[in-house]
Amino acid sequence: MESRKPPPSALVDNHVVPGDVVLDLAEMTNQTIKLGAGLRQDCDTIQATSAGRLRLSKPSKYWVESSQKRYIPSVEDTVLGVVVDTKPDNFLVDIKGPNLAFLPVLAFEGGTRRNIPKFEIGTLIYARVVKANSIMNPELSCMDATGKAAEFGQLKDGYMFDTSTGLSRMLLSSPTCPILEALGKKLSFEIAVGLNGRVWVNAPSPSNVIVVSNAIIKSESLSGIGQRSMVESLLERLS
């Protein structure tokens, strides 16, 4: 058991699995720490409850970053949802979470009772999570914090595919992900990435859509250099 008690933050940026002791509070006096997803306090220790990489954001925020096929809704996340049902006041949207999300009919720019959008079942929507609670269905909105539509709303045409939450986080990371940077230099395309592990791609020609989609799907298990070389070989075949 002693081997699993490293000094504070020694495991940061390393892989942890459930049961690993990541912090020993007995060695950390007069410090305030914040625990995020995948961690819990057990007496004088902080233990991991899910497998992934332990992250630390200064000064003292710890969480476990993991890649999954399922998505746990979190406030302010941007997600790609599919309309599965329509009700008088809400659209029911599948966001790959434990429960269906509600999208109120008035949660659109200038939304009033007179101009309610008409979405058919199967419509793809880019939205923002405004309420996320484990005992309630999540609530979405197609407006930013200022009430403007911004980039949110219905996504027409294009192609949508599912990935892991880890890959979608990588695509949205800053600085720009190597795969998108390399593809963007040679091809013109539109992309919308949801933190729920869904990606939508649109391009002038279907062949470009296929190339971009395949490149993104394959990039999950590649390093930055590997991603660039893969894009080069794909584009060589395309030209």
Partner: peptide
Amino acid sequence: LADAGIMIYDL
């Protein structure tokens, strides 16, 4: 379960 990302106390 761990692979699925389900919160567990320990393996």
